[in-house]
């Protein structure tokens, strides 16, 4: 599990590039530094917003290389276990543990669960992209930054139940 390269296709690849692209020459960075950074957090966002998506079967790709995947394998396996526990939260402990822990070396049996995991990755990516680049008709860097901050405020509310009052 997680020992092969991973690729984003089509519209998802475009979204990844935009999330990493420099906001401007002077700012010199984008929202995320690497594709992996996005890949790591995306499934959680997908779960928070209950959003799943399918692979967009077109040419363009953006990849995470095998080397990087293997370096981060433990973290990704950790993510996988959490996602399975969340998605299958209603099942019995035995079933849940089977799916989350016992299929590490059984690629065939794990296929359908990998697909579920991946669908959350893509859904989460779409959600982040929309929150930052499309919300409120944003078109300038400052507006993207404002959207980012509001996204964080919203997540803060959703995850930690904290409402901050505006001035």
């Amino acid at each position: 599990m997680f020992d092969r390269e991973y690729a984003f296709y089509g519209k998802h690849a475009k979204m990844i590039e935009k999330l990493k692209a420099n906001l401007s020459d002077e700012i010199g960075r984008g929202f995320f530094e690497t594709t992996y950074d996005i890949y790591q957090v995306a499934p959680f966002i997908g779960w928070i917003y209950r959003r799943r998506s399918k692979i967009d079967k077109t040419e363009e790709t953006t990849k995470i290389f095998q080397g990087k995947m293997m370096t981060e394998k433990n973290d990704l396996v950790f993510n996988y276990r959490n996602m399975m526990a969340l998605h299958f939260g209603d099942r019995s402990t035995e079933e849940l543990m089977n799916i989350a822990f016992k299929l590490d070396y059984n690629d065939e049996a794990r296929k359908e669960y990998d697909e579920i995991y991946n669908s959350y990755v893509l859904g989460g990516l779409e959600e982040m992209y929309e929150q930052i680049f499309l919300k409120d008709g944003a078109s300038t860097t400052d507006e993207y930054i404002q959207n980012l901050y509001e996204f964080l405020e919203e997540l803060n509310m959703r995850l930690y139940g904290v409402m901050d009052e505006d001035e």
Partner: peptide, 17 residues
């Protein structure tokens, strides 16, 4: 960002494990 998002979800998932 990762820890910020992950923390509450891990708290939710952990008891099931």
């Amino acid at each position: 960002f990762f820890a910020f998002c992950a923390r509450p979800l891990i708290e939710e998932a952990s008891p099931k494990i």
